[in-house]
């Protein structure tokens, strides 16, 4: 038993962190705020070349043949760097949708609406998508995004996640049954959780850096316990969620060590909470500056809210854990 990151996993994380720092620095990502397309095809193919989408696909299918633990480590870095785009859906669609694995096609996903016509369906990144997966309770279906009667949303909560609205979502062509749908949801919890943990960890760094630098009453605000304890709680949330996400990922790879469904649901639940709470706290630690557009604190919170929507709801995840406890 060794639950630290292996040398290979550390190398994977370092590699992805370097790629993000070089290709997706925050100022370049932010240049696309409010645009209909937030990541260009060359950026997407660099992610594909790094194996972001094909990482878990078997080698004979053109993938890297790595496990979910390796993917979690990579996704954490993508979350930390705030890299935009339908990363999670495209990764989960590898092997299921032609062109997803090698980055030729951007794949999005949307939950199948539960009550027909109850609420408009909101689709992320539709303008960039080559395929759209509809995730239902018992099936996965595939839609052609170009054929949808979609209206672009003027303004999205996360300026780096453009949205479209459709009133009616066609059934689409079946591409997976109940097991595929269950696996999609489970893996979305873990790898979406990894993206969220990356966001949660990034906000700790951001808040702590500001608390060290900002001075009031003649000293850094980070020397006041009221601020210190906010930062400490942020670290606790991100480290606890991180352990949960890593354990869930390893349990998917090593099924004998536990209940992967329970671990995945719990990991998603805690990761959503950590990223949301840390995003809010990060704004608070920044004071008035945290409420300005210029300071990026809000981007982490809004992205967390987007990712929370890609997972099942927190109530559903909590009930899943309770059922299997």
């Amino acid at each position: 038993m060794d639950f630290e990151l292996s040398e290979d996993e550390v190398a994977l994380a370092d590699g992805m962190r370097r790629l993000c720092a070089g290709r997706f620095p925050l100022d370049r990502i932010r240049a696309a705020e409010g645009e209909r397309v937030v990541i260009d095809p060359s950026g997407w193919s660099e992610l594909a070349d790094a194996g972001v989408f094909s990482l878990r696909l078997a080698e004979d299918a053109g993938g890297l043949g790595l496990g979910t633990a390796a993917a979690a480590v990579v996704f954490e870095e993508l979350g930390r760097a705030l890299v935009p785009g339908p990363i999670l859906a495209s990764h989960l669609a590898a092997g299921l949708v032609e062109g997803a694995a090698d980055g030729k096609v951007m794949v999005g996903a949307v939950h199948k609406p539960r009550a027909h016509g109850a609420a408009p369906v909101v689709i992320e990144h539709l303008g960039s998508l080559g395929a759209l997966v509809v995730v239902g309770d018992d099936a996965l279906a595939l839609l052609d995004p170009a054929a949808l009667d979609a209206v672009a949303v003027d303004r999205s909560l996360d300026p780096l996640t453009p949205l479209w609205r459709v009133d009616h979502l066609p059934a689409g062509d079946a591409v997976g049954g109940p097991d595929d749908a269950a696996r999609w949801r489970r893996d979305a919890s873990v790898l979406g959780g990894a993206l969220l943990v990356g966001l949660a960890a990034a906000t700790v760094d951001l808040a702590v850096a500001y608390a060290k630098e900002r001075r009031q009453f003649g000293k850094p605000i980070g020397s006041f316990q009221a601020v210190k304890h906010l930062c400490a709680d942020m670290l606790v949330r991100s480290e606890v969620a991180r352990a949960a996400v890593h354990a869930a990922a390893v349990t998917i790879d090593q099924p004998d060590v536990g209940d992967a469904l329970r671990a995945a649901a719990g990991a998603g639940l805690l990761a959503v909470e950590a990223a949301m709470a840390n995003g809010k706290t990060c704004i608070q630690v920044h004071g008035g500056m945290g409420f300005t557009w210029e300071v990026p604190a809000h981007l982490y919170l809004m992205r967390a809210r987007v990712l929370a929507d890609e997972l099942e709801g927190s109530d559903t995840l909590a009930e899943l854990v309770a059922e299997r406890y």
Binding site: V240, A241, A243, A244, A247, R262, A263, A265, G266, A267, L269, L270, L317, A318, E319, L320, V321, A322, E323, Y325
Partner: peptide, 11 residues
């Protein structure tokens, strides 16, 4: 129960 269970698993 589910929430507390998830936290215990994480710890």
């Amino acid at each position: 129960v589910g929430h507390l269970g998830a936290e215990l698993d994480a710890l």
